[in-house]
């Protein structure tokens, strides 16, 4: 293909996206589009499965049978999200094993929020309420993203995430209507999860790279700061309803702007965790790597068995 042909194809491609057409795996796409999507979708998939760990930590200790079942189901949903997203990613010509390899070697990133520990039951409430809540705000715009398989996966994922969010809020509500000890547990969880949740929207717009291209491809529709603001404005009244206090002395309604002003995010902490030095980065990665390594003989067995069966079938037929 000549350079001119490629240029032509690219123009047609961009025009399709501008017309809101979906790009499908078999369609021609610029290499950069493919690579960017592999990176973003796999990062999202990895976040789903790493995200199973902090909540999985409480399954055996859930305080009632109803909560235990709901938590199991929630963590299982996250595994399902991982599965659709890996599948969407695989349509771009990369295998799941390669994607895992990237995760395990530290080449691929995942959402930093899951590097914080879950130390009380209230963390199950706070994660559902805040972390799934922030994820929804990040992800709803992706239901209309340009790459078809990703957009379709996000529609399913978002539906379930909003269920998780309500469930998390309901855990918080039950705690806040409970005893003093329970309310204190809820407040403590909010104190610990608030700032990391705000960090889920990424660096400030001034620091954020590759936004313009992402906007064009509809991988991003609003800036990090806009999304963060939306999250804060939506969440503050919910905290008020619970009767617990957001740990930010600078948080104040700004009548003029019609939104909340809020305090400075600790970006040093953000970068520390992103760079792998958060409270649980090592534990999360070890859990994944161990699961994978300990599962190798199982996956090998399944493959060997399938091959034997295939041979047996052929032998029978001939």
């Amino acid at each position: 293909m000549s350079e001119k042909d490629v240029k032509n194809l690219e123009e047609i491609f961009e025009a399709r996206i501008a017309r809101d057409e979906k790009i499908e795996p078999k369609d021609w796409m610029p290499e950069k589009y493919r690579q960017t999507h592999i990176r973003q979708i796999s990062q999202h998939a990895h976040s789903e499965i790493i995200g199973m760990l902090p909540e999985g930590n409480w399954i055996t200790r859930a305080p009632s049978l109803r909560r235990k079942a709901a938590l199991l189901a929630k963590v299982q949903d996250e595994a399902g999200h991982g599965l659709y997203l890996y599948s969407a990613c695989e349509t771009l010509g990369i295998s799941r094993d390669e994607l895992y390899e990237q995760l395990h070697s530290g080449k691929a990133k995942y959402s930093s929020i899951f590097n914080y520990p879950t130390i009380t039951w209230a963390d199950m409430g706070a994660i559902g309420w805040l972390v799934d809540g922030a994820a929804i705000i990040n992800q709803v715009p992706l239901c209309n993203t340009s790459f078809g398989p990703y957009a379709r996966a996000m529609v399913r994922v978002c539906k379930e995430e909003s269920f998780h969010q309500r469930q998390g809020y309901e855990i918080m509500l039950t705690l806040c209507r409970g005893t003093e000890e329970q309310k204190a547990m809820a407040q403590d969880a909010l104190n610990r999860w608030w700032w990391p949740s705000l960090m889920m929207f990424g660096p400030t717009d001034a620091e954020s790279v590759h936004t313009e291209q992402s906007m064009k491809w509809k991988l991003k529709r609003k800036s990090n700061d806009e999304l963060r603001q939306q999250f804060i404005d939506q969440t503050v009244p919910q905290a008020d309803l619970l009767g617990i206090t957001i740990p930010d002395p600078d948080l104040k309604w700004n009548e003029e702007k019609g939104q909340y002003d809020f305090g400075e995010i600790d970006w040093d902490e953000f970068w520390q965790v992103v760079k792998g030095h958060g409270p649980c980065n090592k534990e999360r990665m070890n859990a994944r790597v161990n699961a994978w390594n300990n599962g190798e003989w199982v996956r090998d067995a399944a493959m060997a068995y399938a091959e034997k069966n295939e041979k047996r079938k052929v032998a029978k037929a001939s």
Partner: peptide
């Protein structure tokens, strides 16, 4: 329930969680 998130692959992880959920439903 102890295994959730630690299975040899996602499919078996999901299947074992399903079994756990069924058993929990029966228990209740």
């Amino acid at each position: 329930g102890e295994l959730c998130g630690h299975g040899p692959n996602l499919e078996t992880d999901i299947a074992l969680t399903n079994i756990s959920l069924d058993l929990l439903g029966q228990t209740r």
